[in-house]
């Protein structure tokens, strides 16, 4: 339905355009500058407050001038589709992704921001643990079940370690991507106490967690089978030993809260029933 804009809508669009990007779009004629500035400041402060709350380290890494510039560019260039104020950080991540790395950005900025954002995402995600799990069941003989709110990210930078040292942030501002050779696998999840936890995983544990994420719940594959397949695919000399190491890893993940329990492996009579 394309209809010609009504006269009052021309004013609305011009006004919003000037609020977003005062350098490109002048305020409509007849709008008092002082009152226009009230709206511009409210807008900037609101967006900045949301981003500062979600991205405190990214903000500190950039420093006040670069941060202000980035926030202003976000307001000017991005169209926020999410109707909720708390979605501003999501919109900011969309913006950073679409914009690509800025020439003056510290190379680790995007990953640091992503990691900070994940904390918010995991905190408010809606998923709840399925009811029919056994928290203490055997992880090899049954299907291990991951925490319902969980994410596995692969970073080039050790995002948990990005922090100021004696020279402030300068080390992280300069540190080049090329310097990073080993990927950092970061597992984030919400535990049974509803707290968000992060833990860095080895490459092989990350593969194991990825296979658990990819499990089709209808398949009821046991922990032993998952480990065995992983061993066969990645080819260690002794799969049996690999499975016993893997069993210890599964236990550790459960102790941390990333695995919440097991879905019982169906007994033969159930199999028959399901087959009918």
């Amino acid at each position: 339905m394309n209809t010609a804009p009504l006269p009052f809508q021309l004013f609305q669009r011009a006004f919003l355009a000037s609020l977003r990007d005062p350098h490109r779009s002048r305020a409509p004629d007849g709008v008092p500058t002082g009152r226009w500035r009230v709206y511009r400041e409210l807008l900037y402060n609101k967006i900045e407050a949301s981003l500062a709350a979600c991205f405190p380290n990214s903000r500190a890494l950039l420093g006040p001038r670069a941060w202000t510039r980035l926030v202003k560019a976000f307001i000017a260039e991005h169209r926020c589709l999410g109707p909720c104020y708390r979605e501003i950080p999501d919109e900011f991540m969309h913006y950073l992704q679409a914009r690509g790395p800025g020439a003056a950005d510290p190379p680790c900025l995007f990953e640091l921001a992503h990691h900070e954002w994940m904390e918010l995402v995991l905190m408010i995600a809606e998923a709840e643990a399925p009811a029919e799990i056994d928290p203490a069941g055997d992880l090899l003989a049954n299907t291990p079940v991951l925490a319902p709110v969980l994410s596995l990210s692969c970073y080039r930078f050790p995002v948990r370690a990005i922090a100021p040292d004696r020279s402030g942030w300068s080390r992280w501002k300069k540190r080049a991507v090329e310097a990073e050779t080993v990927p950092h696998f970061m597992l984030g999840f919400r535990n049974a106490e509803d707290e968000v936890r992060f833990t860095e995983l080895s490459a092989v544990t990350a593969q194991l967690v990825q296979r658990l994420i990819d499990q089709d719940p209808a398949q009821a594959v046991t922990g032993r089978e998952i480990l065995w397949r992983l061993a066969v695919d990645s080819g260690p000399p002794d799969p049996e030993r690999f499975v016993s190491y893997g069993a210890a890893t599964l236990l550790e993940l459960r102790a941390q809260g990333a695995i919440v329990g097991v879905r019982r492996s169906p007994n033969p009579s159930n199999e028959t029933l399901r087959g009918t």
Binding site: L6, Q12, K46
Partner: peptide, 23 residues
């Protein structure tokens, strides 16, 4: 109103005109 094609998360006054009333 608080948006055009994007949200600005603040409330702005609608121009007080008869067309706006209908709309």
């Amino acid at each position: 109103y608080c948006s055009d094609e994007g949200h600005l998360y603040d409330l702005f006054p609608i121009p007080f005109t008869p067309e706006a009333v209908n709309y």
